[in-house]
Design a protein around this nucleic acid. Structure first.
Lengths: 209, 209
DNA sequence: CGTCGCATTGATATCGCTCAAATCCGGTGG
DNA sequence: CCACCGGATTTGAGCGATATCAATGCGACG
């Protein structure tokens, strides 16, 4: 859905944009680079990290397929950070000048781009609000409610390992696991043994943090 | 700075936009309303809340001066939420149709609007990353580093009560206070007794979470 | 069959939250 | 000018939730 939403961006820049397949760990750009392009993640995932003086990694932002990397792309990166791809990732690189020209001259494109940005904002706001919730259970419910567009009782297939999901929620894997077990005991969700699939009970939708 | 950044938006819609002064607590719109306008906060602050079935308030999003309320404005609100203003707030209401027409037909405007959205996104990303930090001290440092644009050693004047700030950081006021005391003891910051002013030591900039 | 990665489970440590109270400060009215 | 009041800050003590550390189970894969 994310990917589909941004497909048009890729198509719009078929010529100007440059698709790159980036092996895991490769650096896309560094802090201090003059922002010269928009990076749209097509497949895989890109991450921005920041290092403290002692070398410890202190924070990370993840950009999924369909998202611009990192942040909005039109502004200079805020961080003393490095960007890289820990997974095999496909990136569409669009020169900023191209984007600007297009926005200024193509009304239809400008509208769609604004919409694209708005959707991205909505997603980011959802993530923010999720982390504002202090209890693990609330975060999980919030996540489920956001990801699940269908009617209550629908099933959510988890294609990511538990640790990834926990990271999304700002939790440790163990905590997430225990929380899921707790929610199941309360009857708010049901999960398959190996944890690859979760069904949300109707009640859970209302609780949704 | 936020306000200044969005001034152009207000000016651009001098005629079409409608400035409203909203008394504290008044509802701007409700969930389910068809999104028909952009709400730009000019002064004060607007908040979006969401209620659980039992009536408890479970989360809140705050929009400051210069920000669109809530989220990006071009998409339908995601939430079962109500929006209201607990403070005296000035709002600029711009019909969506106007905005869309302007984006489509005025290249210059479209560019500035895209930039505006990008800046908003950057701000939201910063808030998100701040909450990803688990330790209180890291959040405080991150906040200081983001708010402080000047060189290290600059002074940050706090015009908000401690409780507000704590809320921004996803902390309780007591925790924030103790954390500040701790940071001062470590020499990373210096604060005036009444807590209305904070000076950041050079070292703190590097730690900045 | 062995190993590896990940899920699961248990025990403990730690941090921030909660409740409670004292203090400080600005403002207000006498 | 001074006493009082109300709100915010400051400080204290204890609790609870989550992180952390450690170990085991389980399935996939070579």
């Amino acid at each position: 859905m994310n990917g589909a939403g941004a497909t048009w961006l890729g198509e719009a820049f078929g010529a100007a944009g440059k698709v790159q397949t980036v092996p895991a760990g490769e650096l896309l750009f560094r802090l201090g680079d003059v922002p010269a392009a928009l990076y749209l993640v097509l497949e895989g995932e890109a991450r921005a990290r920041r290092f403290s003086p002692d070398g410890a990694e202190i924070l990370m932002q993840r950009s999924r397929a369909g998202e611009l990397f990192a942040e909005a792309g039109l502004v200079a990166p805020r961080y003393s950070c490095e960007a890289f791809c820990p997974l095999i990732t496909t990136i569409l690189r669009i020169p900023l000048a191209e984007v600007r020209a297009r926005i200024a001259n193509d009304g239809e494109f400008a509208l769609r781009f604004a919409q694209f940005q708005a959707v991205a904002m909505r997603r980011q706001c959802a993530r923010y609000e999720r982390l504002r919730l202090k209890r693990a259970a609330d975060r999980v419910l919030h996540y489920l409610n956001c990801e699940l567009t269908g009617p209550a009782g629908a099933t959510l297939a988890l294609d990511i390992p538990l640790a990834e999901w926990a990271d999304d929620l700002g939790l440790e894997p163990e905590t997430l696991y225990r929380t899921l077990a707790e929610l199941e005991k309360k009857g708010l969700i049901q999960r398959e043994p190996r944890g690859r699939r979760i069904r949300i009970a109707g009640a859970a939708a209302a609780c949704g943090g």
